[in-house]
Amino acid sequence: MNVFRLVGDLSHLLAIIILLLKIWKTRSCAGVSGKSQILFSLVFITRYLDLFTNFISVYNSVMKIIYLVTSLGTVYLMYFKFKATYDSNHDTFRIEFLVVPVGGLSFLVNHDFTPLEILWTFSIYLESVAILPQLFMISKTGEAETITSHYLFALGSYRALYIVNWVYRYYTEGFFDLIAIVAGCVQTILYCDFFYLYITKVLKGKQLKLPA
């Protein structure tokens, strides 16, 4: 474990908590893409199948459980409890256009052709594009609530910090996983224009409005 990965994990946890609290406190999931939340749940389910078979550390197991419970809880809030506030008219990204190619790619490019490894690879590839429905929804509505932009900033920062962690681990342990690194770079690049808007607008107290 290194500080970059720890801060990255905490940033990821913060993002998930921010979103959960936003939906719970305002009792509304306006402006939030349920499709992205479904994809994130799928990412955690396919990645953490080894939760009970492969113990790494208490921290690792506890975080996996928290991610699984909170992401599924968010999907539950969005599609059941506060379904009336779910903005399905703007959450129209076709996630099959993500899941199918990612599924195919995980069969073609992986470290080991075993079910667990292919599912892990699937989850890594899927996570890199899972935010697209959310970014697409914001581009359609043309704006995002400030709390949602904080959520996105924390979520985007997590994988950016993981990239720093991979550089650090490469130089200190000689460890690197090309699949995770490439997917992590793609994932972080997708946030770039949002990061620019967040830093130039939201941090100056303005509303996040995408150029129409």
Partner: peptide
């Protein structure tokens, strides 16, 4: 590269 198979990252 180091063939590290232990998935110790989240």
């Amino acid at each position: 590269n180091v063939e590290v198979k232990v998935k110790d990252e989240l």
